[in-house]
Design a protein around this nucleic acid. Structure first.
Lengths: 214, 214
DNA sequence: GAAAAAATGGAATGTCCAATCCAAAAAAAT
DNA sequence: ATTTTTTTGGATTGGACATTCCATTTTTTC
């Protein structure tokens, strides 16, 4: 098929693929900085160095670009965290993951919020396809968290239900990220993730009050 | 002053106040249903039965209307919950509040997400004044939650820090609401709030595993 | 009852922005 | 080397939409 709107586009040349990715990466950054509605195709052109023809060569319309931005952020956020998610089978691994997220938000000065959650929140009621895509990304993220918790559970170290606990941890993370963004302060995120660590620890077989950490 | 853009508007007649409120209420509903960007002034006119002149008679511009929508939602959400927040000084009160929120989302079929959180997420990076207003609303909400937890603490029933716990509960709530909205399923919210109840209970002096509830 | 102020109606204006169009250059395929 | 395809450039178009403008009606104030 020569149409591109509903099917996977025909295979691009390496140069074409590079241009397409440059456009998606630029759009992803702009949409994190200013939201989807606050990002125009003109902005994307300027940030990516592409022309209008290129934008509409690679993307049927703005909505198609948004879908690719969601997929891109899914890789950048969930995909990149997978090595750490694989280590959530220990409380120390959980703590390291939390520390990484808090530090990352500190580096960003709490701007943008969660790259996936913010997109989902903005688009959920106006773009069903986008909402479904973000839902898929959240399920992937939850699955990664659950994998580690389940391993703990299978070793007999975690007494709580890893299904529910993974969901709770992701929800707390999303809420902590939102509050940090709104208040421009990592404390809500830090405190919330620490509470999750405590909560997980409280449901391990070696449950003891967490001692002061250096 | 005769200007209306930066100062409190001059006193309205009762009829004028009624019209202004009708506009704000209509805008609030539309912005929950379709987001701020997805809501035009034409939509607000149609929903409120007001004319363009009326919109711009009562609001300097769309941004001014948005600010009033945030204040309105603050009252509708946090203000209306205050009686329940006053009862968060018991685990049963906490459970009742959580049940109310879950049922409310069920009634809405998880559409819209949190009326305050969604506005904040969409506007945080494009409207500093809006972000600050939402921040204030979250602080008010957190304060209401903390009040109850602090009462428990002061009675010696809660061993955890009510400051941190209130923050954690609000973050978990926001995250649960977001996940429920994105997945169109109350389960993430239910599970997350249940975990918060467990977490609070685990830090009370009568800490026992929660038995199955009817 | 009259004057002033507020509320209301709706057409018009100007700007923004997604998307299209016309075309040339570069790269790939034959 | 030539033809075909892909990539690229940028002007233009049409529609959306916030806001302004002109005016009348209604309500409030004196």
């Amino acid at each position: 098929m020569t149409t591109r709107t509903a099917t996977k586009p025909r295979k691009l040349t390496p140069k074409g693929e590079q241009t397409r990715l440059r456009i998606v990466a630029a759009a992803a950054q702009l949409m994190l900085d200013r939201g989807v509605a606050g990002t125009t195709m003109e902005d994307v052109k300027a940030a990516s160095g592409a022309s209008s023809s290129q934008l509409y060569h690679y993307f049927a319309d703005k909505q198609a670009l948004i879908m690719d931005v969601i997929a891109y952020q899914d890789e950048r956020v969930v995909g990149d965290q997978e090595p750490m998610l694989a280590r959530l089978d220990t409380v120390d691994g959980l703590r390291a993951w939390c520390d990484f997220i808090v530090q990352h938000q500190r580096d960003l000065e709490c701007r943008g919020g969660c790259p996936i959650g913010s997109l989902g929140s903005e688009l959920a009621e106006v773009d069903p396809a986008a909402r479904a895509a973000v839902s898929g990304s959240f399920l992937r993220w939850e699955s990664g968290i659950r994998g580690g918790l389940r391993a703990m559970h299978e070793r007999g170290e975690l007494t709580a239900d890893p299904e529910d606990l993974a969901l709770t941890v992701l929800a707390a993370l999303q809420g902590g990220l939102l509050l940090a963004q709104i208040h421009r302060d990592v404390r809500p995120l830090r405190v919330t993730l620490d509470a999750m660590i405590d909560h997980v620890q409280a449901h391990t077989t070696a449950a003891v009050p967490s001692s002061g950490r250096p």
